[in-house]
Design a protein around this nucleic acid. Structure first.
Lengths: 163, 163
DNA sequence: TTGACCTCGTTGCGTTTGCAACGATATGAG
DNA sequence: CTCATATCGTTGCAAACGCAACGAGGTCAA
């Protein structure tokens, strides 16, 4: 189809230029690239608008969001699902505990596990942030337009498959 | 529709538990969350499988990929498109220059600009990585299934809109 | 019960990151 | 021209990060 500069056969810069500018096969069609750009943009935008004003970081937001939707869980459960390094989750949890937003206690049946749980203060914070988060998401969906639901569906399906 | 734990009306943990487990409104349906998880997973997977073995980092890969598809550009053009901090691009470029994969020269018409350009060595590296990248992407698309093209389309459209 | 082996969460450490500040260059008004 | 203002890329610095190693706890076979 469309080769141009990213063609497998492209060897030297001269050859690339000889084929002229590439109209459609640009950066924007390499999937990992697209995902990274969109994700970073969305996360940063969301953090800028809402999260910072509550004095929490992005990793901290992810942890309490997880706790809010799933109930009390272990550190492991979070970093596996969210794809954060476990030390990142651990440190975020420590900061959240210091702030009094979550509690940490050893799971009695398996004493290796640390059970994280939102405190009342944590829930109160979430009840302030949640409307903002939902509003942000809604505006994001609006931007996606009519393909939005399908897009989200594909995303969810993929994440479920991939484990 | 489906409220449960993420409901705007959710105030306390007790209330949350009273509604019971939430079957569908889980983490996996909050869009920024989904995007972050997928993007991080894809980037890391790609880096693990292919990039590391060529001795370059993810930011470096993004820079040379951009140069390969767009031709010589300034630092600014890269970090605006790819959503990396400009210092990140700057440092990646310095490392790439040290490795002899790109060249840096001052733009003569605007001496503030630094024009980055792949060297022959850089092009040779890209000609090795590109097939692997395309293969990785193809397998990713396969996983997405028949919604793949639509998904990619939505992504591209959104990125273009958002500037 | 012991010992080998596994998993969980934390921590130490070197590297990378993001932010702000900077020097150098460009632009435009007066 | 001069001065104020803006933009570009680099760099200093504190914070955050990822990785590996660790201690503590669990599992299971011998």
């Amino acid at each position: 189809m469309n080769f141009g500069c990213l063609s497998v056969h492209n060897i030297s810069r001269i050859k690339c230029y000889e084929t002229g500018p590439v109209p459609e096969f640009s950066l924007d069609s390499f999937l990992p690239y697209q995902l990274a750009a969109l994700s970073s943009r969305v996360s940063r935008e969301f953090a800028k608008t809402y999260v910072s004003k509550f004095g929490i970081t992005i990793p901290e937001w992810r942890v309490i969001f997880h706790l809010h939707t799933s109930g009390p869980v272990s550190v492991r459960e979070i970093f596996q699902r969210v794809d954060m390094d476990k030390s990142k989750v651990s440190r975020a949890a420590s900061r959240l505990e210091e702030s009094g937003l979550i509690s940490k206690k050893t799971n009695p049946t398996d004493r290796r596990l640390v059970e994280l749980e939102l405190t009342l203060k944590g829930y109160e914070l979430m009840s302030k942030i949640t409307p903002l988060a939902l509003d942000f998401e809604r505006r994001l969906m609006d931007k996606l337009g009519e393909q939005g639901p399908a897009f989200r569906e594909t995303l969810a399906h993929f994440l479920k498959e991939d484990g």
